[in-house]
Simulated assay, not measured.
Amino acid sequence: MLRDILTTEDAQSEAAAQVVAAARADVLLLTGIDWDHDLLALGAFADRVAAHGLRYDHRFAWRPNTGWQTGLDMVGDGRHNTADDAQGYGAFTGVKGMGLLSRLPIARAEARDFSGFLWRDLPGALLPQAAGADAYPEAVLAVQRLSTTGHWDVPVVLPDGGRLHVLAWYATPPVFGGPHDRNLRRNHDETRFWSLFLDGALPMPPPAGPFVLMGDANLDAQAGDGMSEAMAALLAHPALQDPAPSSAGARAARGPVPHDLGTVLWDGPRQPGNLRVDYVLPSADLRVRGSGVLWPAPGDPLAEVVATAARHRLVWVNIALP
């Protein structure tokens, strides 16, 4: 991936940089970007965006759970050190992680990483079941983290010295996962984590100040293969507000539900079509000035660039600073 970002000939990297530059966000969460120890890939992408006139001097990422090998047979297939045996599915350390780019300073010393939280420690965890009992042995449950990629609380420093907390996550798709619906259940609980967190029902307290919850939940509240009730409950949480960003591109795309809030297009004869799985949800105490999904209608000059950049579309929300 770093090689592709550094070359001038990679169409996807260039298109992604153009999309980011067009959005001109002050704080940007990237999902599906490979992590490396020195954040060379994240920095290279930020530099590529800078070539289009938008500088992100503040860059942040923790090592994701994807590709982080456990040394155990995590799925009971009799093999070790496969992509399935990592904390989050992945063939190598850091694959498809998250990265934060910001024009505002990042309060690194105050950031919190919840990615080590064990799945079984989530109240009411929907652990994989077989014959009415846990499908996996104690040795697996004792190390299996909830986060496929990560759950973060990263404060950015506002011009007046205050903090705006970025709550970020990137969940597993709810499909695949073997005979015990491992991914389906985990996806549900990765989203439900935030509802419990905001309720104060977890060992880590929610932020005292304003926040924005954002990421790729891989979960639509109305349709798709996931357990939609987890997303519906989060969107209705009293600590949050849902700006319901829409786009002309979503309105024109094939989808299973009659809304224009889609953020991804899985197109094909056996694909679900247009779903809403990517979210930017400000806390209830913030004033929203505008929102949208950067998904132009077919024929728009930017439409081909957006389609080349990624299957997922960029979601944006404009808030008034507290």
Rank of each mutant, 00 (worst) to 15 (best):
K96Y: 13
F92T: 06
G249P: 08
D160Q: 06
L275I: 06
I106K: 03
R185S: 01
R108E: 14
D267G: 03
V264D: 00
A133H: 13
P179A: 11
N183Y: 04
W316V: 09
T82C: 01
P205T: 10
Y136I: 02
T8L: 12
N318K: 13
N187E: 09
G249N: 08
I5A: 06
R182F: 15
G116F: 07
G43Y: 03
S247Y: 05
G67H: 01
E229S: 14
G150Q: 13
G161T: 10
D216F: 03
A239E: 11
G99V: 07
S115A: 13
M98V: 06
G97Y: 02
F197W: 15
E229M: 07
P322H: 08
G268L: 07
N65Y: 02
G290R: 04
H312M: 03
Q241V: 12
F197Q: 03
T149K: 01
G299Q: 07
A297N: 04
S195K: 11
L126G: 00
L100M: 12
P238R: 06
V317D: 11
W68G: 00
L321A: 11
P203L: 02
L39W: 08
A133Q: 15
S291G: 11
G116H: 09
H37W: 06
D113Q: 08
P207E: 06
D300T: 04
P256H: 09
A217R: 02
E14N: 12
L54T: 13
D113H: 05
H151K: 02
A86G: 12
W169Q: 14
M74F: 05
R48T: 03
E14P: 00
T66P: 00
G67Q: 03
F193C: 03
H58E: 12
A232W: 02
N65F: 02
A201T: 01
D38V: 02
I106H: 03
Y89I: 07
D10V: 05
R79W: 06
P243R: 07
D73A: 05
D260S: 13
A23S: 12
A107N: 08
P105F: 11
A232M: 02
D216H: 08
E9S: 14
G32M: 04
D220T: 09
W119L: 04
L213H: 08
R24P: 00
P245W: 09
L184T: 03
A232I: 03
P298Y: 09
M98K: 05
T93V: 14
A297P: 02
W316P: 00
L146M: 10
D38L: 09
P282A: 02
L126E: 11
A23V: 15
A131V: 00
S13F: 06
E229G: 01
L302D: 13
D85N: 05
S13T: 09
W35I: 02
Q18F: 00
A310Q: 10
L2K: 12
L29A: 12
D73M: 05
Q18M: 10
L6D: 15
V264N: 11
D57G: 13
P298W: 08
L167R: 10
K96E: 15
L141F: 01
P206D: 01
I319R: 04
L314P: 04
A236M: 02
V212K: 04
V280Y: 10
G249K: 10
Q144W: 14
A303H: 14
D34T: 14
A309Y: 06
I106S: 02
L28T: 09
G224W: 10
P203E: 03
A253R: 07
V143C: 08
Q271C: 01
L101D: 07
L122Q: 11
